[in-house]
Amino acid sequence: MISVKNVHKTFGKNEVLKGVDIDVKRGEVVVILGPSGSGKTTLLRCINFLEKADEGELNIGDISVHFRHATRQEILRVRRRTAMVFQSYNLFNNKNAIENVMEGLVTARKIPKGEAYETAKKELDKVGLSDKYNAWPSQLSGGQQQRVAIARAVALNPDVILFDEPTSALDPELVGEVLSVMKSVAREGITMLVVTHEMSFARDIADRVIFMDEGAIVEEGLPRDIFTRPKERRTKQFLDRILLKDEYVKDDYAI
C-alpha cells in the first residue's frame, strides 16, 4: 500500500534519517515509537514532502517516486493520496470547523461544494462535533481542534493518514477523547502510520510497532512481542522508561 525505502535525511551535519524502510499494508495501523530526536517527525514529514529527503523511494498505491527527484506534479499527487494530523492541530485559522474539513475536498479535489458539505458534516458527526460545525478554531478546546483535524484528514479518504504525536500538545484530560476517535478511525480500516507515546494505543490498536532510535529502525514486530519481550537492549530501555513514567502517572492519580 505504502512503502518507503532507504530514506536518508541530513540537516546540515546532523544525519537525522539513516536509511529507513517501512512497509504498511492496506488497513494496517503501524505505530512508531522512539525517543525524542530520533527522527520520527522528520520521517513523516518526508513522506508528505513537507521535508525533502536526500535519498530514498516512496511507493503509494500505483505512484512510485524518488524523494530527491520528485517533480512538483508528483509531490502534489502524493499529497493528495495522504493526509496528516499534526501535533499542534494546525487548523486553518480563517475557517470554521466545517470549512476546515471542506477545504481539501473543494479546492484540492474539486468536489462540488454541496457534496463536500455533506461529507464534512458526516465526518464531524463521527468525531462527535455535530454541534460545532460553525465554531472557529479559537472557540474549540485542543481536543476538539484535534478531532476536527482528524475529520479533515479522514474526509479526504486518503490511502494513509500520518499522525505525528496527535495527543502530545493536549491537556491530560483531553487525551482520551482524541485517542478514542483515533481508535474508531482505525476500526474503519483506514491505513494509519502513527507516532505516539500513548502506550495504550500502541498496545490495543496497533497491528505493528516500530521502534526507532537515532534515525534508524531498531526493531519492529507485533505490539505484544515488542512490549513483553523486546529483542534489542535499546528498545527495552526505552520501554522501561516510558512504562515507568506511566506507572508514576497512575500512582499520582491514586493519591
Binding site: F49, L50, L76, R79, F92, A153
Partner: peptide, 13 residues
C-alpha cells in the same frame, strides 16, 4: 508555518 503545512497536507498548491 503550520498553516502552510496544513494546506499542503490536504493537497493545496
Amino acid at each position: 508555518e503550520g498553516q502552510y503545512e496544513a494546506c499542503f497536507s490536504v493537497g493545496l498548491t
